[in-house]
C-alpha cells in the first residue's frame, strides 16, 4: 500500500522534481541524490502530507528544502570553488569557447548567474507555473516579497540575456 503510493508519486512527479532540483543545484548527480531523499522523506513520513496543498506542491517544497540543504553543504561549496577555478583556467583556451558554442544554455546559464533568491522565484513562477500566493507559501515569505523578487529577478535577467533573447522569451 505504502509502496504503491510511493511508486505512483514517483511516476507522476519524479521527472518534475529532479528538474526543479537541477535548476537549484546545477548538477545532475546532486539533483538525483536530492530527489531520492525527497521521495524517501515522503515515503517515511506520509502522515505529514495532510492534503492542505497538492502532492505536487508538497513534493516541490521538500525538493526546495533539500536543495537548500545541499547548497549549504560543504561538498557543494567545494564543488563551486573547484568549478570556478577550472572555469577561469579554461576560459583562456579556444576549446572552451567551442564547447560553450556547442552547449548553449542561454536562459539556464543566465538563471544560474542570478542570486538564488531571484532564481528561485523565477523558476517557481515561470517554469513551475506557481502563482504568487503559492510561491509565498512554498518559500515561507510574504506575497509582496515574492512580487518584488520576481520583478528584480526579471530586470537582472533582462540585463544578462540582452534585448533580443528577452524579446524571444516574451513571445510565445
Amino acid at each position: 500500500m505504502m509502496n504503491s503510493k510511493l511508486q505512483e508519486a514517483m511516476e507522476q512527479y519524479g521527472e518534475y522534481c529532479i528538474r526543479v532540483a537541477y535548476l537549484y543545484v546545477k548538477e545532475w548527480t546532486a539533483a538525483e541524490e536530492i530527489v531520492q531523499d525527497v521521495f524517501l522523506a515522503y515515503h517515511f513520513q506520509q502522515e505529514r502530507f495532510r492534503n492542505d496543498s497538492s502532492l505536487k506542491t508538497y513534493l516541490v517544497k521538500i525538493t526546495i528544502h533539500k536543495s537548500y540543504d545541499y547548497l549549504r553543504s560543504w561538498s557543494a561549496k567545494k564543488r563551486q570553488f573547484v568549478e570556478s577555478f577550472h572555469l577561469r583556467t579554461a576560459e583562456r583556451s579556444s576549446e572552451y569557447l567551442v564547447m560553450i558554442e556547442n552547449e548553449r544554455q542561454i536562459l539556464v546559464d543566465a538563471l544560474w548567474k542570478l542570486p538564488l533568491k531571484y532564481r528561485e522565484v523565477l523558476i517557481l513562477h515561470y517554469y513551475d507555473d506557481y502563482k504568487i500566493k503559492e510561491i509565498a507559501e512554498i518559500i515561507g515569505s510574504s506575497e509582496n516579497t515574492v512580487k518584488t523578487r520576481i520583478s528584480r529577478g526579471r530586470s537582472k535577467l533582462k540585463e544578462l540575456l540582452g534585448p533580443e533573447q528577452w524579446e524571444v522569451l516574451l513571445h510565445d
Binding site: 519524479g14 521527472e15 542561454i106 536562459l107 539556464v108 515561470y126 517554469y127 524571444v168
Partner: peptide
C-alpha cells in the same frame, strides 16, 4: 510563460532524467 518552460527544457535536455 510556456516559452520559458520550453526553452529551459530544451536547454537542460528533454530526455528523461528521472531514470
Amino acid at each position: 510563460m510556456t516559452r520559458w518552460k520550453e526553452q529551459i527544457d530544451q536547454e537542460i535536455g528533454s530526455e528523461s532524467k528521472f531514470t
